[in-house]
Computed example of a mutant assay.
Amino acid sequence: MQRRFIQCDVFSHLPTRGNGLAVVLDGEGLSDEAMQRFAVWTNLAETTFLLPPTDAEADYRVRIFTTSRELPFAGHPTLGSCMSWLHAGGRPRTPGVVRQECAVGLIEIDVSGERPAFVAPPTRVEPLDAARLDSAVKALRIDPADVLRSALLTNGPVWEFLELRDAAAVLAADATGASFPEERAIGLLGAHPAGSEADVEVRMIDIWHGIKEDPITGSLNAAIACWLQAEGRLDAPYVAAQGTRIGRHGRVHVSPRGSDVMIGGDVRILIEGTLEF
């Protein structure tokens, strides 16, 4: 059976400098095994499959797979899937707003502006255990004096989050040779000097049997923004740079909208066609 397929680039206005996403637009009828197998084959951070919604308020349903497992929510797959669905002729029930159904519930995406932006899902904020903080600092060769704040953030994925002294300290973090007995995703944030092209620098480093740095992580940026809001520190829009250390040019546009936090970014459709499997 032929299925429509799109490969897009998310969170950068420069093609191939963002985070790549594979989107199967006709995912109905595929087994979990087939979806996982195809995600392994694409070998991208995530591959999504669009399906008819089960929620009457949703425009479509999405399932999100990494090369090893299914995710309940992820940021760049949310924006990439939404814009791929619109590109393929999808029409939202409410003009200017797409409602995506995924495992964490309905995600609202504003498509009325310059770039799409989703409403960040609720984030649980907890203290980061002192032992885990210490091991993260040692694994990334961070000077403990550079750690300003830390937290455990959960919005589907679980993030061990550290706010560092500045963007330079974020970019200097080095996980070479690090390993943990279980998978741990460590997020870093540090401010750029005033007047810089981006306001903050973000990194997401996944450490287990090896080290993987994600190019641009919408769900982490969403969790950080919700944490800033809970801290009373999200009073104006800001732009987060991510992927700098690995040659990407990610830009995540964060803005408060009443009680909501909006996470936006550019999406470029790079490949479209059909596939058979």
Score class of each variant (00 low, 15 high):
residue 1 M to C: 09
residue 1 M to L: 10
residue 5 F to G: 01
residue 10 V to M: 01
residue 13 H to K: 15
residue 15 P to F: 02
residue 19 N to G: 04
residue 21 L to W: 12
residue 24 V to A: 15
residue 24 V to Q: 15
residue 26 D to S: 04
residue 31 S to G: 15
residue 36 Q to A: 12
residue 37 R to K: 13
residue 38 F to D: 15
residue 38 F to K: 09
residue 38 F to N: 13
residue 41 W to F: 11
residue 41 W to A: 14
residue 45 A to E: 13
residue 48 T to C: 11
residue 49 F to W: 09
residue 50 L to D: 12
residue 51 L to D: 14
residue 52 P to G: 10
residue 53 P to N: 00
residue 63 R to S: 09
residue 69 R to D: 14
residue 71 L to Y: 12
residue 72 P to H: 05
residue 77 P to M: 01
residue 91 R to V: 08
residue 92 P to V: 02
residue 92 P to Q: 02
residue 92 P to M: 00
residue 93 R to P: 02
residue 95 P to W: 14
residue 105 G to F: 06
residue 107 I to W: 06
residue 108 E to H: 15
residue 112 S to T: 14
residue 114 E to Y: 04
residue 117 A to W: 14
residue 133 L to G: 06
residue 134 D to A: 06
residue 135 S to G: 06
residue 136 A to D: 14
residue 145 A to T: 11
residue 148 L to G: 11
residue 152 L to Y: 11
residue 154 T to N: 08
residue 155 N to T: 09
residue 157 P to R: 03
residue 157 P to V: 00
residue 160 E to N: 06
residue 161 F to N: 14
residue 162 L to F: 08
residue 164 L to N: 06
residue 165 R to N: 08
residue 171 L to D: 11
residue 176 T to A: 12
residue 178 A to R: 07
residue 182 E to Q: 14
residue 189 L to G: 11
residue 190 G to C: 06
residue 192 H to E: 13
residue 197 E to I: 01
residue 200 V to P: 05
residue 201 E to T: 05
residue 205 I to D: 08
residue 211 I to R: 08
residue 212 K to R: 09
residue 216 I to W: 07
residue 217 T to E: 02
residue 218 G to E: 01
residue 218 G to M: 00
residue 220 L to V: 00
residue 225 A to C: 06
residue 226 C to T: 10
residue 227 W to C: 09
residue 228 L to H: 10
residue 231 E to K: 15
residue 235 D to V: 00
residue 235 D to A: 12
residue 237 P to M: 10
residue 238 Y to E: 04
residue 239 V to Y: 07
residue 248 R to Y: 09
residue 250 G to E: 12
residue 250 G to A: 09
residue 253 H to R: 05
residue 254 V to H: 13
residue 260 D to S: 04
residue 261 V to Q: 05
residue 263 I to V: 03
residue 264 G to A: 04
residue 265 G to L: 00
residue 265 G to Q: 06
residue 269 I to S: 00
residue 270 L to M: 13
residue 270 L to R: 04
residue 270 L to D: 10
residue 272 E to R: 11
residue 273 G to W: 13
residue 275 L to P: 08
residue 276 E to C: 08
